[in-house]
Design a protein around this nucleic acid. Structure first.
Ligand SMILES: [Mn+2]
Ligand SMILES: [Mn+2]
Ligand SMILES: [Zn+2]
Ligand SMILES: [Zn+2]
Lengths: 133, 133
DNA sequence: TTATTAATGCAACTGTGTTGCAAATGTAAA
DNA sequence: TTTACATTTGCAACACAGTTGCATTAATAA
């Protein structure tokens, strides 16, 4: 008997999956993988953290992007699924407190002569609400 | 006798400086550090390449940014100096041929409630003029 | 030509992320 | 409950981009 198994995303509810989802419940913004690995280092191996994040992204539960210095950040998706990630938006990093989060604003990319824009990564930096005195 | 020396940027015209500037004369777009190190590996050490690029950026001759995968790219500045880098613009990476270059378009960042935007990194991806059939 | 010090090469290192594989664990079926 | 087995994990080793310290070389001003 032949079975077609599509292995991707989260299949089993493990302790590491719960722990990582819990972090995103506590923290409403984006979380860097570096800090997540550090935070969970006593309970899970860094490889596990990287792999669980991968799977959560495949499932459309989290999405990722690179911060200013090239390290990876994850944030919760809203309204994405394993089949479609339509969660494209700018991210904002506070230069004072370092907090990073998703923006709901829509940045209009002007059409560029002789080029077809298919994707965009926008990272804004400045002062967040808490740090604006 | 005391002398105040401000060591930054290019002070001496060396072979590596000339070789790297030559690469940017040949190639009008952006060049990744990885490919530059590779290209020049028979003549210069990678550390030298990194350091010369640093200095050229300090001088306002080149500017740098990160590509989609987090590796560093450099491109020529136009109208910058050691004192002011006012060369902020989006960059475009072709998904077909991999070519990366600077865009002259002005992307308007909408004002964001309760936040002060002080900097922006915008990377667009799609098809370049050559790859648009 | 000489003295000075910027620039270079090299080797070793750092930080982020990945891979292969054996062992452990979650889950569905018996 | 027990069993069977694919998924998930931990570990160690690795890959890769970029950095650092230091002795040596070379550009330049005197
Ligand atoms: Mn986001
Ligand atoms: Mn540019
Ligand atoms: Zn802040
Ligand atoms: Zn192209």
């Amino acid at each position: 008997m032949l079975r077609y198994i599509c292995t991707m995303g989260i299949v089993r509810r493990t302790k590491s999956v719960d722990a990582i989802l819990e972090e995103f419940k506590i923290n409403s913004g984006a979380i860097s993988v570096v800090s997540l690995v550090d935070q969970l280092s006593s309970r899970f191996n860094k490889t596990t953290v990287y792999r669980v994040l991968d799977r959560l992204e495949e499932d459309g539960i989290l999405h990722s992007f690179l911060g200013k210095t090239g390290i990876k950040w994850y944030a919760k998706c809203s309204g994405c699924s394993a089949s479609e990630h339509h969660d494209v938006h700018p991210h904002f990093q506070c230069l004072s407190c370092g907090k990073v989060d998703c923006l709901t604003v829509n940045v209009r990319i002007p059409s560029i002569p002789n080029r077809k824009v298919e994707a965009s990564q926008i990272l804004l930096q400045g002062q967040c609400e808490a740090c604006l005195v």
